[in-house]
């Protein structure tokens, strides 16, 4: 696989403890290196690495293209995974409510605008990183605190009943595929 990166390789965090590194290429051709422990946090990426049979010897020669995630989101994701690669496994949730405290470092990392967070959560979902998903969802949930329904509609982009009704009317008025 030969991809010419348009930007320099992003070394998010130097990995001393684990010499096994993988290369990931984002949809806009940014190249990232990520350690084995960190990449394991993404079920999608780790399944891919396992299926491709990448090893310590050939990993860096075979970058993994991830077409659904752009460089900006990938950078955040790699930072996150490197930060949490040695975290203990989370206990299974026994309650409906996610009971955890969002660490300050992660809150800072996820202090991005709404649209960026929207894109990041889609990327996280695609790469199947449960912990980052939990954290993103907590941030999105926290946005609702102390807001009125009107404010929530703006934050979450929820149409009003009148807008939904108008949309439904226009959909039913417009001719179908045959007409």
């Amino acid at each position: 696989m030969s991809v010419e990166p348009e930007v320099p390789i992003v070394q998010v965090e130097e990995v001393r403890e684990n010499p096994v590194l993988y290369k990931i290429i984002s949809s806009d051709n940014h190249v990232f290196t990520i350690s084995e422990h960190a990449v394991k946090l993404s079920k999608t990426l780790w399944d891919l690495i396992t299926n491709l049979g990448l090893t310590a010897e050939n990993a860096l020669d075979n970058p993994i293209p991830v077409e659904n995630v752009n460089g900006k989101n990938m950078e955040t994701i790699v930072q996150f995974c490197e930060r949490h690669k040695y975290d203990e496994e989370e206990p299974e949730y026994t309650n409906y409510i996610r009971e955890f405290v969002l660490p300050e470092w992660d809150r800072q990392l996820l202090s991005i605008d709404n649209e960026e967070l929207f894109q990041l959560i889609l990327a996280t979902n695609y790469l199947d990183i449960q912990k980052l998903m939990d954290y993103c969802c907590r941030v999105i949930g926290d946005m609702a605190k102390d807001k009125t329904p009107e404010e929530l509609r703006i934050i979450y982009g929820i149409p009003t009943d009148a807008e939904d009704d108008a949309l439904e009317r226009s959909a039913s008025d417009s001719p179908g595929p045959s007409g």
């Binding site: 996610r98 959560i121 889609l122 979902n125």
Partner: peptide
């Protein structure tokens, strides 16, 4: 958002 993500958000 995908339904699975909406569910994760509502779980909070």
């Amino acid at each position: 958002l995908p339904r699975v993500v909406q569910k994760e958000i509502f779980d909070n």
